[in-house]
Nucleic acid binder design. Structure first.
Ligand code: MN
Ligand code: MN
Ligand code: ZN
Ligand code: ZN
Lengths: 141, 141
DNA sequence: ATTGGATCAAGAACTATTCTAATTTAAATT
DNA sequence: AATTTAAATTAGAATAGTTCTTGATCCAAT
């Protein structure tokens, strides 16, 4: 007979992504991140996810976010020592923190740009990850 | 008569930098950072500075580092959620974290590179600070 | 249906950092 | 030079984001 598990949910999210079983909690958190472009913190995710999962715990939010990050389904974004934020955009991009509003914007690179070509790296360097963060203001006029 | 204060120390570091009074503690911490290229954490600074200032407290190390950062005498460097590190290099540069050894290397930009020109920023954006961090390995051969 | 491993929930624990309050130091004023 | 005033330092308590621990629950495989 057909499984009573994840397959039967038919909500558009596959039961497994990058080898990570997509439990109900992971699915809902992933859906929330895909819907919001606001790069929420773990606590913001926790508060918003209660609408669909009233019994979820903050520990589970952290566990799910970590699992999603480690399976390269979402990305963790840090600004200085502020709480970590989470981003569902897997394209190579940077993050601009607008200090006037507190909002965070994805920043694409201009076409044909390869970051490591512009850096004076030591020889035989294997780069696994680059992070670019910007801080400033979106001026009025 | 001549001051009994900072002027009489004659150790090469001026009594004031960028409007910040260079107390004994701030001087020693600044000297230590200028001597080390290792981007130490506050706790590492604390342990090493005890040689010259046996009675200093960790709170003072944090206070001094924050004062030096806010007066643009040194820079604070963050890798993900690891303890903050401190860098005396004021040139525009990025940081490469070698995961094999745990060491951090300054990374210069190739000549003539203007980072913001390569980014697809929203219009009317005033950038106050850019941070570039890289993670990877310095492979053997 | 049973089993075993994965996941979840609740709260305790951890740790880098910041805060508080008292003391000390140094600059400014008299 | 003594007094006054403000800044800096210290020690320890407090904070906060995150991680850990443990027992319960869920689910896929047998
Ligand atoms: Mn930073
Ligand atoms: Mn990071
Ligand atoms: Zn993003
Ligand atoms: Zn540096």
């Amino acid at each position: 007979m057909t499984s009573q598990g994840l397959l039967s949910q038919a909500n558009g999210i596959p039961e497994e992504i990058n080898g990570l079983r997509m439990t109900r909690q992971r699915q809902e958190i992933y859906k929330l991140l895909m819907g919001e472009r606001s790069h929420p913190t773990a606590n913001e995710v926790f508060m918003r996810i209660k609408e669909s999962l009233p019994n979820i715990s903050l520990a589970t939010v952290y566990n799910c976010l970590e699992a999603l990050v480690q399976h390269h389904i979402i990305r963790q974004v840090n600004f200085d020592r502020e709480p970590s934020r989470y981003c569902p955009n897997l394209d190579e991009h940077g993050h601009f923190h607008d200090e006037a509003t507190g909002t965070i914007h994805d920043v694409k690179f201009k076409p044909g740009i390869n970051l490591t070509d512009l850096l004076d790296l030591p020889p035989h360097t294997v780069i696994k990850d680059i992070e670019i963060t910007l801080r400033g203001q979106l001026s009025a006029s």
